[in-house]
């Protein structure tokens, strides 16, 4: 009975089952399979460029292009140097312009893949994303790989997930 009570208390702290789109909060998933390190990033358009619809003015178009370039930057994520990971060409998916019609939330998605010569030394990933996106205040990171799973909250002050 008492154990049930304790667990009930824990359950009250229930976490969101699936973190939803929230302004200022990005999500990143880190998957490690042998020498391949794949990082997928979801960035709310609002945090990236400050608006959440198709760009209207030249200035907004330029902002979107700059954001696209920033998330495609191969140095956006820095795995443990000792793991000797080399980036492959990142892929970026912008929200389909016009379709959202200004009503729905939109995310910029990017996927970065690395090949690591020494995957055993891979113990952390650091990001420079907070330098490029000042409106982003938090990145919820999840990781899965041979070493198990974990989660961490990355912030401008602590932009590292380590395990």
């Amino acid at each position: 009975m008492r154990i049930a009570l304790i667990y009930a208390c824990l359950a009250l702290l229930a976490l969101p089952a699936q973190a939803q789109h929230a302004h200022g909060e990005g999500r990143m998933d880190i998957a490690i399979d042998r020498e391949r390190l794949a990082i997928s990033l979801e960035l709310p358009l609002d945090a990236a460029v400050g608006f959440e619809r198709a760009p209207k003015t030249e200035k907004e178009k330029a902002a979107l292009a700059a954001a696209q370039q920033a998330v495609a930057d191969p140095t956006l994520f820095m795995p443990t140097p000792a793991a000797a990971c080399k980036p492959e060409a990142p892929k970026v998916v912008l929200p389909e312009s016009g379709k959202a019609g200004g009503e729905q939330h939109a995310d910029i998605e990017a996927s970065h893949v690395f090949r690591c010569a020494n995957p055993a030394a891979l113990k952390s990933v650091e990001t420079t994303i907070f330098k490029s996106f000042k409106r982003l205040y938090r990145l919820e990171a999840r990781r899965a790989g041979p070493g198990g799973q974990g989660a961490a909250r990355l912030t401008p002050k602590h932009p590292v997930i380590a395990w």
Binding site: L10, L13, L15, A17, R142, R143, A144, G148, Q149, G150, A151, A152, R153
Partner: peptide, 17 residues
């Protein structure tokens, strides 16, 4: 259905408490 990554869920739980 709901799929939970146990390691992630625990880390998130520790973050909360």
């Amino acid at each position: 259905l709901l799929g939970v990554m146990p390691g992630v869920a625990l880390d998130e739980l520790w973050q909360t408490i």
